[in-house]
């Protein structure tokens, strides 16, 4: 039996008291699970095969009892830390997860987080990735998900803070009737750089996928979005939609967006759309004509822009917390979660 490093100060500092964030908080430090968990609940959390990362297996319905993974980078390691988290849901199992990534200080952390999601027939997973590191960190997330028959995956990624963020989401609709909803919000300023690669493969018929990704870029920030939907030859009755919309606040901010559809079946409903825009001058005047200051009007318009992505988060308390954090981020304030005592993120 492995002895787990227990870091009480990390636990204390990052204790999260956002209501409904999770009935259980599980800590990971530099990719090491701090303690196994959940055996008594019908789900199980154990360290990954090589000791790093974790494996969660879920049986039964735990949807109303979310689990929160608080993953913190702590040690000053010059090399990147790479680990794999696996989420395995048995047929019919249901689970909600919130994965919060933080750093303990402003060190140039490099982290590669692989995520494997395997949903059995009829399984449902709602997973929220909250990326809140700092302007020096380098963060890479790769999600590989496979969905069984009638399985449902809701995956939300909120890229709030990070020097360089790269998110890749690959979802494979393996069996008929699978559904996945992928959404993401990226906010970048300064010289931050954010990259999203989304690849949805419809290998079976009667499946549906929805993608909604939005970004707000300020200063000299850079972002790219590449999204692909592939519908295989026999995947009839597929419904697949993709949208990527971007708001550029300065002339220097830059976004490259590349939506792609590859359709080999003939009875499908698919669409993609991408846009790049700026704040609406008439809308700003309308708000100002009601007494709202220009900076406040700009913030309201940006919040309005991101609202539909945040609206995908179903738990009210979590969504409201994220709305506040996004708003303070857009206001250029330190976007700490006030429930966390460390206030470092």
């Amino acid at each position: 039996m492995k002895e787990y490093t227990y870091l009480p100060e990390v636990r204390q500092a990052f204790r999260c008291s956002v209501p409904d964030a999770g009935i259980r908080q599980v800590f990971m430090v530099d990719g090491l699970l701090q303690e196994p968990s959940g055996m008594e609940n019908g789900w199980e959390l154990t360290p990954g095969k090589d000791g790093r990362g974790l494996i969660m297996t879920v049986r039964g319905d735990h949807f109303s009892s979310p689990v929160q993974i608080i993953s913190v980078r702590s040690e000053d390691m010059p090399h990147p830390v790479e680990f794999t988290n696996e989420w395995i849901l048995a047929p019919g199992a249901r689970m909600q997860l919130i994965v919060c990534d933080h750093t303990i200080k402003e060190f140039l952390y490099r982290t590669i987080r692989n995520t494997v999601i395997s949903l059995g027939d009829g399984a449902q997973l709602d997973i929220l990735f909250m990326q809140n590191e700092h302007k020096e960190s380098s963060y890479k997330l790769e999600v590989n998900a496979s969905l069984g028959e009638e399985a449902l995956l809701d995956c939300h990624i909120i890229s709030l803070y990070g020097g360089t963020i790269s998110n890749t989401v690959n979802a494979i609709m393996e069996k008929p009737g699978a559904r996945c909803n992928l959404d993401g919000l990226y906010l970048a300023d300064g010289t931050q750089s954010i990259e999203y690669n989304v690849d949805v493969k419809h290998l079976s018929g009667n499946c549906s996928s929805n993608q909604l990704f939005k970004g707000v870029l300020d200063n000299r920030a850079r972002a790219s979005f590449r999204g692909t939907i592939l519908v295989a030859k026999d995947s009839q009755k597929t419904e697949a939609f993709q949208a990527n919309h971007n708001l550029l606040l300065t002339k220097e901010a830059k976004i490259t967006t590349k939506p792609q559809l590859e359709i080999y079946a003939d009875d499908v409903k698919c669409s993609h759309g991408a846009s790049i825009g700026r704040l609406d001058e008439l809308g700003l005047f309308y708000l100002r004509s009601r007494g709202i200051s220009l900076p406040e009007a700009q913030t309201l318009q940006q919040m309005a822009f991101v609202q539909d992505v945040l609206g995908k988060i179903k738990t009210d308390t979590i969504r409201e917390r994220l709305e506040k954090m996004v708003e303070s981020r857009l206001r250029g304030e330190f976007s700490k979660c006030s429930h966390c005592t460390m206030h470092c993120c």
């Binding site: 609406d280 008439l282 809308g283 309308y286 708000l287 009601r290 309201l300 318009q301 919040m303 309005a304 822009f305 991101v306 609202q307 539909d308």
Partner: peptide, 12 residues
Amino acid sequence: PVEIPGLSNVNF
């Protein structure tokens, strides 16, 4: 009157 999707009348 200008439409502002995402901003509720209440918050406005």
